[in-house]
Simulated scan of single mutants.
Amino acid sequence: MLRLSRGAKIGLGAIVAVVLIFMYTPLALVVMNSFNAARIASWPIKNVSLEWWGVAFTSQPIRDALWNSVVVASGATLIAMLLGTLVAFALQRYSFFGKETVNLLVILPIALPGIVTGVALSNTYNSILEPMGIHLGYFGMIVAHATFCIVMVFNNVLARLRRMSPNLQEASMDLGAGLWQTFRLVTFPQFRTAFIAGALLAFALSFDEVVVTIFTAPPGVDTLPLWIMNQMGRPNQASVVNVVATVVILASLIPVWLSQRLSRAEEGR
Rank of each mutant, 00 (worst) to 15 (best):
M1G: 00
L4H: 00
L4D: 00
S5K: 00
R6F: 00
R6K: 09
K9L: 00
I10N: 02
L12M: 01
G13T: 04
A14S: 05
A14P: 02
L20W: 09
T25R: 03
L27S: 04
L27N: 05
L29H: 05
V30R: 05
M32W: 14
N33Q: 04
A37S: 15
S42H: 07
P44G: 09
I45H: 05
N47D: 11
S49C: 03
G54C: 06
G54A: 12
G54H: 06
F57C: 09
S59E: 02
Q60E: 10
P61D: 06
I62H: 06
R63I: 10
A65D: 11
W67C: 12
W67A: 14
N68E: 00
N68K: 00
V70I: 14
G75R: 07
G75Q: 06
T77D: 10
L78G: 13
I79M: 11
I79N: 07
L82I: 11
L86F: 03
V87D: 01
A88M: 12
A90K: 06
Q92H: 12
R93H: 02
R93Q: 09
R93V: 05
F97T: 14
F97H: 13
G98R: 09
V102H: 07
N103V: 00
N103M: 03
I107T: 13
I110D: 01
G114E: 09
A120Y: 02
I128E: 11
G137L: 08
Y138E: 03
A144T: 08
A146P: 08
T147W: 01
F148N: 01
C149D: 02
I150T: 04
V153D: 10
F154D: 10
N156E: 15
V157F: 09
A159V: 15
R160V: 04
R163N: 14
M164I: 14
N167Q: 14
L168M: 15
S172G: 09
L175P: 14
G176E: 15
A177Y: 15
L179Q: 03
L179F: 05
L179T: 04
W180P: 01
Q181E: 13
T182A: 07
R184Y: 15
T187S: 11
P189S: 05
P189W: 04
F191C: 05
F191N: 08
F191K: 06
F191G: 04
R192P: 06
L201V: 10
A202N: 06
A204D: 09
F207C: 07
D208G: 08
E209V: 08
V212T: 06
T213S: 12
F215T: 13
P219S: 15
W227C: 13
I228V: 10
Q231T: 04
M232L: 14
R234Q: 15
N236Q: 12
N236G: 11
S239V: 07
S239Y: 11
V241Q: 03
V243P: 07
V243L: 02
V243Y: 04
V244Y: 00
A245D: 15
A245L: 14
T246G: 14
T246I: 10
V247C: 05
V248K: 09
L250C: 13
S252Q: 12
L253A: 04
I254T: 15
W257F: 13
W257M: 04
L258G: 02
Q260F: 06
S263N: 14
R264T: 12
A265M: 08
